[in-house]
Design a protein around this nucleic acid. Sequence first.
DNA 1: GTCTATAGCTTGATAGAC
DNA 2: GTCTATCAAGCTATAGAC
Lengths: 203, 203
Amino acid sequence: MSTKDRILDAAETLFADAGYDGVSLRQITSAAGVELALANYHFGPKSDLFLAVVQRRADELNRERMTLLAALPDPPTMEGLIDAFARPFMEKSLRGGAGWKSYARLIAQIANSQRWTQAVMHTQFDPVAEAFIKGAKRALPEADPRNLYWGFHFMVGAMTMTFAETGRIDVLSRGKCKSGALDKIYQRMIPFLAAGFRRLAEA
Amino acid sequence: MSTKDRILDAAETLFADAGYDGVSLRQITSAAGVELALANYHFGPKSDLFLAVVQRRADELNRERMTLLAALPDPPTMEGLIDAFARPFMEKSLRGGAGWKSYARLIAQIANSQRWTQAVMHTQFDPVAEAFIKGAKRALPEADPRNLYWGFHFMVGAMTMTFAETGRIDVLSRGKCKSGALDKIYQRMIPFLAAGFRRLAEA
DNA sequence: GTCTATAGCTTGATAGAC
DNA sequence: GTCTATCAAGCTATAGAC
């Protein structure tokens, strides 16, 4: 495994647990088993390393989302549309290894802070978001387009928190619900969100 | 204004913008216009200051939420229940001053990270969450209780991201939607979420 | 590409005078 | 309750040898 990948993997885990400022380059290179100076040599400043961590999986995720979105019938159903957007993330989180779990926790923090909205959310995720909105306009042609943007926003909020698996719901439900049972949650999330979109389309 | 309050206000704004580790005690006391040593004198270690910042408004918020929840008819409607939970936050964010906007950005980060789940979410917000779930069981008695926990989870994800006002939706919608127009968004969020809950109850 | 060594700064916390 | 001064540790970034 290359030095670059070792650094990216270590940075991903640590950034996911403690955030950008909660982790030092020393912790990252130490966890990766490489020298401190190599982080700067391969990635430049710390902020560029952070962006590289996020970009690596965003590219793969977006490619799959775009493929699924393009394969939908026209007009698509809302359920199909939401599934095309959410399924790649769910599958990778369940079966892609620990790196994807870290990435999910990282994205939840990024999506909920102003700090990385421009550099990460707009740069890396807006093209897919626009493809989703375009599909939603076909699925619900009678809807006010603004309501579809808001629906998308509510969906992203519910999804990022779900994939982050903070464990809060496990304690709150006294073990009846499990954050880690993503496939079970997924079966509930899709209809929940689709019903919300449909209700907004009627308004 | 007391030294303690000056420190709390400055810390709130800075923590909301950059997170716990992104802000130093020097930045906080400097913004508050007091000496560095006073942060430790009044609040103890940095982590205790952070918890004090969150607790201050959580107490006020929870009191109002509990009052509204207790005033609902039995059985309540899902719309009424969600409104009782969300309205105090929305009103304060719209009319409570800049401190409540900072607090909303802070809560969005906390709710989406594992790091503060125990010390903040469970400690400060679980009692109200349980009151909400109890009401949801009355509103939708035919629902599997687990689905109500998941609905609550999706609701919190959508709500925290909405109140955080990251501005992403403004750019994505090319100005058609505005993060800051919380009252308009609120009218869409309540039916979106209520329809989601109802759909889960049918499953 | 990798390593050692270090410059230049910032950090949280506190001791001790007032 | 407030202030000055400081400690010990940590930080990012980089220069220079190999």
